[in-house]
Design a protein around this nucleic acid. Structure first.
Lengths: 266, 266
DNA sequence: ACCGTTTGTCCGAAATATCGGACGTCGGTC
DNA sequence: GACCGACGTCCGATATTTCGGACAAACGGT
């Protein structure tokens, strides 16, 4: 079990911080269950979920049965693992259709991913983290697994430099947790380097970052702005770092045009 | 309140058929709540949800608060309505990525919708009903609201004629509820007409229907088959009925090619 | 063939979440 | 300005759901 430490830690947090007593409402257990599946991003055995969320085994079996019946979960593979079921897809689609900006962004992202042939994304902030809302894989199809709904530190991303556009140096320092400036490989991003990226982004109308989260990847991002000029989302490409400058310029133009179309009240 | 009659009927069903007693588990209330939102496909006031699902008002407020906190639901507009929240989208995306056939179908549907410019869908059966799993609007963008997750009688659709491919006349009669042969406008589809459509579909490798559910719409569908030859899904176009025969032939070829690529073990 | 581990089900007890109803606000209508 | 209906919150009682632990079956390694 590779998620061992994190799992135990999570269970302890559940028991200590959230519920002094052992007993909890079914709905709270279900929320913990779904969050756990989302974090693991893989079909998981019921007993493991129970252990890792601090839920009694008998309770978890009971709940899983109910949820499977409602199609919220699905039994997978024949081994006793469960994962999200079709109902989640239906409800998620309803959500996407109900949010005006996202509905429009879906069209843009699908269009530019198809015509350019590279992975395109639509991103926003969630609290002090960066979040991929839409992800359309390009023809290349490298890195299939989507990062939809996964929170990432702002400094790790090109889009992040646009999304905190409206903050000054001091506000940034307070808003972004200090540890978020440390990349997965241990390197640390200097704050004034980050601020310089932001400044350049504002004047140029786009951001390019290379080899940040992953050594061979370049990200190109353009801002979607509300009428007041604040960056409320970004649209971006994820491409191999060795993509020609010429091709990248073309993508940047594409992104700027899409971002402009998505910016409300223009 | 325009959903009045249906709503009351649903509440009564809940109380009589499902729960002889008034008291229910929170999780069951939540499932009813989400299903209700999905049926209505619109932000809904909490009191209305409570009434229409037969849930006590105080209980519904309590649950909605919990779910809003978990981002399963979102308060909308400022009037007191709620609808699905971002968490549903994340979980739904996880589901899509976890099912091999659907993940591949997403690529195909997006591709043909973009290149052909018409609305493309990926459909399966759910019980004895037809179900749209993926929907990619074409450039035309008529009928924006997706039908994802909405169950439709099999005889109302082109795809339906493929999806029951493997049944003989007698089995069909037992499998499809008789009332499902009546169209929304009251017309009734003759059973042998339906069987004839199926037969032709099997030999031609596609189905075309016109003016079935909606007078000005033509549906073109091709079967995705498992190694045993059984139709497990369809991929289809939804186009205006006055689309030229030439264009339709091109689309049929496109569909057949995509469906072939999606058919496992070939 | 043996034994330790894991899976899934079942049961009774008790902690508690659900429920009904009351209450204060707010907005619109006559 | 009084009335009416809808909204959202709060509270105490009790019907019920959660929980722990026991149990049988299935599994898998030696």
């Amino acid at each position: 079990m590779k998620s061992g430490e994190a799992a135990v830690k999570q269970a302890e947090e559940k028991q200590s911080a959230e519920k002094p007593t052992g007993r909890a409402r079914g709905i709270d257990r279900v929320i913990a269950l779904m969050e756990h599946l989302h974090d693991r991003r893989a079909p998981t055995r019921i007993a493991d979920i129970a252990r890792d969320t601090g839920t009694p085994r008998s309770t978890m079996y009971e709940l899983v049965n109910t949820l499977v019946e409602a199609r919220w979960l699905e039994l997978r593979d024949g081994d006793g693992t469960v994962y999200f079921g079709p109902a989640m897809h239906y409800y998620g689609s309803d959500y996407l259709d109900s949010v005006d900006l996202i509905r429009k962004a879906r069209v843009e992202v699908a269009h530019i991913a198809e015509t350019v042939g590279e992975t395109a994304q639509f991103c926003t902030l969630d609290g002090d983290k960066y979040l991929v809302v839409l992800n359309e894989p390009g023809r290349r199809m490298f890195r299939i697994s989507s990062e939809i709904g996964i929170k990432v530190p702002i400094p790790w991303t090109a889009s992040g430099r646009l999304l905190v556009d409206h903050l000054d140096a001091e506000e940034i320092r307070r808003f972004i947790p200090s540890e978020d400036f440390t990349l997965p490989d241990g390197r640390r991003i200097a704050e004034d380097e980050f601020l310089e990226d932001m400044r350049r982004a504002r004047t140029q109308g786009y951001v390019r970052t290379t080899a940040l989260v992953d050594r061979f990847t370049t990200c190109l991002a353009a801002p979607v702005r509300d009428p007041s000029g604040r960056c409320i989302a970004t649209i971006c490409f994820v491409v191999p770092a060795d993509t020609t400058e010429e091709a990248q310029q073309m993508m940047i133009d594409t992104l700027k045009a899409s971002a402009e179309r998505l910016s409300p009240g223009r």
